[in-house]
Design a protein around this nucleic acid. Structure first.
Lengths: 169, 169
DNA sequence: CACAATTAAGTTGTGCACAACTAAATGGCG
DNA sequence: CGCCATTTAGTTGTGCACAACTTAATTGTG
């Protein structure tokens, strides 16, 4: 009763294809996360915390909202994460004088210093990834296209402002 | 400890590249998850639950371990997930007679019937993704290569850190 | 046969993602 | 000015991922 004669490309084949892409993306994301977890353990950072630190190292002091826009994370994720970064001693939080709704995130000395240790991370990752630069670029472009399409399909873009990362040169 | 490389061709650029790939993958994964979340809401499934159901629809009754191998998920993730699928009425769990350590997961009638509703999901996804089949294939291949490389790098792990808990086989 | 090692599933604790909500500050409008 | 919608963080609750651990069944070895 399970076997269906698929003379035409039946819906069930789409389920199979769906599983393949879902799974690939899901697995790649988790594999990535796993490698970073190992590498970042010494730094005392998780993978999302590392993304936040990378953003701060690149842009300097930022309000929570800007970090959220750049990384597409909302306050429900960022608030506790930043609190943990604060208790780890890597960042400071203080209310903006100009707009007391806003909370600005600033690197501490320790947070700034951590960057030196983080510099070795990309080397390890690059070796682990082991993709030719050209594939690397293709992958990143495809992922960006995919995300764009999915975001558009998901809902009419709430924010379109500054539009952070992924402006590769 | 880390030996500092004598010459360094702008480590900071690597941090930027790292952020770009991390972010692309992370964002794509979450965007994907978001679209599925919306589509699967009607079915009463989450994205990982959908992956499990796809696996069961394709392979029929499976022990927890096999599901874990196919989806690269461990019991810590699967046990509660399957318990939720059970209380939703989509699967049944029962101990194997042959090996009482093993728990076999079987679709209920309701779980089997759900497949009919799920058949529309890939259409929506395909439209949302909106990638040419060729790009689609390239993406999947690159992701698989990436995962393979990362998984390989994860196991043997030869970083110069103080990690000494390496099981060999 | 007894007993240690292995295997399968489950449990606990931490952290992230996200929906839905609250609280406080700001800005617009009559 | 007072009032209300909006904006910005933060909070709560659910679910997933994963490390570390526990429990029970099976296997291997003496």
């Amino acid at each position: 009763m399970v076997t269906t004669p698929p003379d035409r490309p039946h819906d069930e084949d789409y389920l199979r294809l769906d599983l393949q892409l879902c799974f690939s993306l899901h697995a790649a994301s988790r594999a990535f996360n796993g490698v970073y977890r190992t590498l970042l353990k010494d730094l005392g950072l998780t993978y999302p915390q590392y993304l936040v630190m990378l953003t701060l190292w690149e842009h300097g002091e930022l309000p929570v909202k800007s970090i959220g826009e750049k990384l597409r994370l909302d306050s429900g994720t960022l608030s506790p994460l930043l609190k943990r970064l604060e208790s780890a001693g890597f960042v400071e939080r203080h209310r903006s004088k100009a707009d007391e709704r806003s909370v600005s995130i600033r690197l501490t000395e320790q947070g700034t210093a951590l960057r030196e240790h983080a510099l070795t991370v990309p080397h390890h990752i690059a070796r682990a990834v082991n993709l030719p630069p050209e594939d690397f670029h293709t992958l990143r472009t495809l992922l960006a296209t995919l995300t764009e399409g999915l975001d558009a399909a998901q809902g009419p873009m709430a924010t379109g402002t500054d539009e952070a990362a992924c402006a590769e040169g």
